[in-house]
Simulated assay, not measured.
Amino acid sequence: MESMSPGHALAIRLESLDPWRNLAVEEYFIGRADELGPVLLLWQAERAIVIGKNQNPWQECNLRALRQDGCQLARRSSGGGAVYHDRGNLNFSFITRRSDYDLSRSFGVVLSALARLGIPAVRTDRNSLFAGTGKISGNAFCFKRGAAMHHGTLLVDADLDRLRRYLTPVPSDIRSHAVSSVRDPVTNLRTFRKDLTVEELSLALCEAFRNDRGNRMAIVPDGKWPDDEIRSPYRKLISWDWIYGMTPAFTIEWKRPGEGRELALQLEVDQGFVSAVSCPGADGPLAEALGLALNGCVFSASALMQRLRQHPRAAAFAAFGAWADFLEGHAPS
């Protein structure tokens, strides 16, 4: 695009509601940070939970509820915690050369836009934005090669009931070194401005960005970014290997009372595959059969249940009567 010339800041409003596509566009601009000036992307998505790069989806969200409601799950390239997206949420992404990265400056643009709309907000020491007693924005950061990105959410009129439903995981016994989300009380910006729209907020952010850059900014429409440069990150972002397989290694345990003893099943999961199985409370042959059946299996309900049903000693697994319910609560089908 001719308007995307080096030296000028760019504000781009993405039209797509596909969370993976918009995350792929972020990666496209991260890859071009050296040749372009500062970029501000503004975008929305259909219902989705977006987790941080180093998080465990089984710990962060209710996967069963996501499946039931058709809510998407994405993993981004930045750190931080899990966030909820829908059409009532506006996402912003500041992308620049790493040498030009200034976190206070990008936060200043957002706070200036909110102040322009009559909404007093503050930045916390955990780099969230609060208005009143509620969190209105979660933020995360990514550094790649010579590029830096600060991106975040702004809850305008998001469905907070769905947010809480999806970000309340099924109770479980998971031991992991994955990054855990900080679960703060949240609120919408419409609490403070009843008539506020996502478009009005988007325009306020563009104006604040223009002022910050001394009017050296161009607002350009969403473009047809080169397919070959979007396709590769998009394929990565939608893949099972990225969304689930990038989960840091963890151990999950299921227990149920048995006849005179407690039965337990412990699975160690690494890169999305069962790497070890132990069965405290089960007799030796049953424990051995479970280990042979499940070791090396993808950690998903359908794959694990198929392994159990096809095993020659399948009848022995009846001792784990709640097994299917356990899997449906903790593994994506």
Rank of each mutant, 00 (worst) to 15 (best):
W43S: 05
K135C: 06
M305A: 11
L327G: 04
K224C: 10
F143W: 13
E27K: 02
L327S: 02
Q44F: 02
E35R: 14
Q44P: 00
W225F: 15
V109Y: 00
N215T: 07
P332L: 07
L189Q: 07
V182Y: 09
V277A: 04
Q68S: 07
L17S: 12
A264C: 15
L90S: 01
G52Y: 03
G52E: 01
F192A: 01
N215L: 08
L205I: 06
P57A: 07
L308R: 06
G284I: 11
K224H: 12
R116F: 04
A314S: 15
A303H: 11
D18F: 10
T251P: 01
L292A: 11
C297E: 10
S275N: 09
A45Q: 01
A331S: 08
G88K: 07
E46T: 11
R164D: 15
A121C: 14
S106F: 12
M1Y: 11
F143I: 09
E35L: 08
A11I: 03
I95K: 00
V170F: 07
D125L: 13
S128V: 08
L304H: 05
V122I: 11
V170D: 06
G37T: 07
G223C: 09
G80V: 01
N215I: 01
L42D: 09
A82E: 03
V83I: 07
G81C: 08
L63Y: 06
G134Q: 06
